[in-house]
Design a protein around this nucleic acid. Structure first.
Lengths: 159, 159
DNA sequence: TGGAAGTGGTTGACGTGTCTACCAACATAG
DNA sequence: CTATGTTGGTAGACACGTCAACCACTTCCA
């Protein structure tokens, strides 16, 4: 039986990291979303989908591959792809090898829009985040993220 | 005129930090939200609101103060408080000194629910994040977040 | 003092994300 | 071959977040 007194509350030092991270992330996402929305017709999720698709040689992916790449659940992906299809940014194609399946493919319009949006987005990521931190700090952040993600993955497999 | 060739794309080192951070944050938020939802009746936003209110001596705040504390826009706050009011977690009170204004106050039920939810949430934050990183890494993260946030604030004031 | 500008807060419409349930096709063990 | 479980994907209901418009009150200054 676990009692409340067993809880190890966060120390001031720990809380500073946790709250800081939460706040930074919230502000960064909001600012980047705003920037994308005003300088292009894309939302941040749209952008991520189009990056993943245009990284492929044939500009298309099976939905489950795209979902794994982005870390999205299949339902979310399905909804989002439907909205993007309505706006003509992507289209669906039949999959001949598995009749359940499909492909999500970037359209010409999708390519035009992401090529227009990418420079401004990358510039914003630099100005807001990358160029404000020392390379060593970026390495610590990258190492930390990989560690945390790897251990979450371990947990998932063990359960 | 800015040409695409002027864009300084992210180096592999920079992209590792940026993508890692994004992914970690996404997974952490999802996992914490899931944990809160299953072990209590609260969503993550509910939790944040209740923490802010119960931190106050009188358990209440003006909506704009609460919004500043959480970094939320007033519209978001208004919507969320309305939903929480419907569920009896908070209630609104009149503000006598400014007749436009109001207070958002925790109810007894709200207190009970957050006291029940907090230990599990803090335990999850520790298990998923805090306890998996060295204190020095946490300090670097805290410093980085404060730097990024401070410079965003500077930008905001300058513009 | 009266009107314009600013502040506190709400609302509605709409895009987004999650959960649950569901259908169709595949894989495979008997 | 067929029953059973698994995988790929969709659909609806609902919670959440943003934007723009709005109302009510306050502030301030001509």
């Amino acid at each position: 039986m676990i009692f409340m007194t067993d809880v190890r509350w966060l120390t001031e030092r720990e809380a500073r990291a946790w709250r800081g991270l939460q706040f930074m992330q919230m502000r960064l996402e909001a600012e980047l979303a705003r920037q994308l929305a005003t300088e292009s017709g894309l939302s941040y999720p749209d952008y991520l989908v189009l990056v993943a698709l245009t990284d492929q040689p044939d500009g298309r992916l099976r939905p489950f591959e795209l979902g794994d790449l982005l870390g999205w659940e299949k339902s979310r992906l399905s909804h989002h792809v439907a909205r993007m299809t309505d706006r003509g940014l992507v289209k669906k194609e039949r999959c001949t090898s598995d009749r359940r399946g499909a492909f999500v493919a970037v359209t010409a319009k999708g390519r035009r829009e992401i090529e227009a949006a990418a420079p401004g987005h990358v510039r914003a990521v630099r100005e807001l985040f990358i160029d404000r931190l020392a390379p060593e700090a970026l390495d610590v952040i990258a190492d930390s993220a990989e560690k945390v993600l790897a251990e979450m993955e371990d947990d998932r497999l063990r359960s």
